[in-house]
Amino acid sequence: MHPFQYQRAESGDQAVAVVAKNPDAAFIAGGTSQVDLLKEGVHQPSLLVDVAGLPLRQITDFEGGVRIGANATNTEAAYYPAIQARYPAVSEALLAGASVQIRNMATMAGNPLQRTRCPYFRDLDQPCNKRTPGSGCAAIGGYNHVHALFGASAACVATHPSDLAVALSALDARVQTTGPRGSRTIAFPDLHRLPGTTPHLDTVLEHGELITSIDLPAFAGRSHYLKVRERASYAYALASCAVALEMDGAKIKRARIALGGVAHKPWRATPAEALLAGQQPTEKLFQAAAAAAFADAKPLEHNAYKIPMGRNLLVRALLETSGLQPLQGPAGTAFAASVGGMAGQVATPN
């Protein structure tokens, strides 16, 4: 690990000022991603500014929705009653991610800002444009079974690993920030970038821009998150999806779908969303929507399996969200979100 100085932030503004003026400085909150990457030598900041103590931990009702402070832990947000009841996709994504210990440490701002799990990114002996711009991409032409189907570039084919981010994208959450150029609101689907020629930049945040809260807008529909992984628990998604449905009587008024594990950012399946609007939910319709969602998928050598997997996952998520099929566990828990493994075996619904 490279040496660094450590500083506890005194205020949000002070944290922004300190990081903004030092190109080698970085924030740290829960530390579960940052410390790991420091140990790997992938991140080599000269200064860490600890924002975990800033008073940004409240979760409150806000404009008919919920405002989640940046420092609320993943556990706190997942079990917050209004979130678990009204935005189950968020709780499901959180509780199906990582482990209890990590969720107790991880913050709501840190989670969507975790870096890719592309194995080459963490291996300093491999070329990786995300870690070392201009060095090449070991995954293209390498073992790329966990890599992207959509929006990849010749520079990088990595996927974004956060489960939470997928749910927040489908719900059109808003990210509140304060940065060197003042405060702003970023629509969650615009937070992450596609790799293009600058894969070292994951998000549109400026250096030193601090997330202060993540806001869930008022939402009267149903939402759900579904995740497939290589083991029953404590693993990243191979593919996942979040669905938010608003109904108008028996018809779908508006559908929002974000796919996880398939792109450099949560991938909004807009063709499928358009196809569902105004329609009566049926399995056939959902099949068509899933086909539309993956029509433009561009598989790499080892990840074509994600196309049928993703399609089937999306069909099931739509069936479960619309109520045509029961959830496999209580809404808002890991058991509703997990495909296979431990799903459907809960004795005491929370």
Partner: peptide, 27 residues
């Protein structure tokens, strides 16, 4: 593992389980 992947280093911080390998002591 020293990287948050095994749980062998689990301790309680303020009563909640946490991984001491991914916690900086200063924090």
């Amino acid at each position: 593992c020293d990287h948050g992947q095994c749980g062998a280093c689990t301790v309680h911080l303020d009563g909640h389980s946490a991984l001491s390998c991914l916690t900086l002591a200063v924090m």
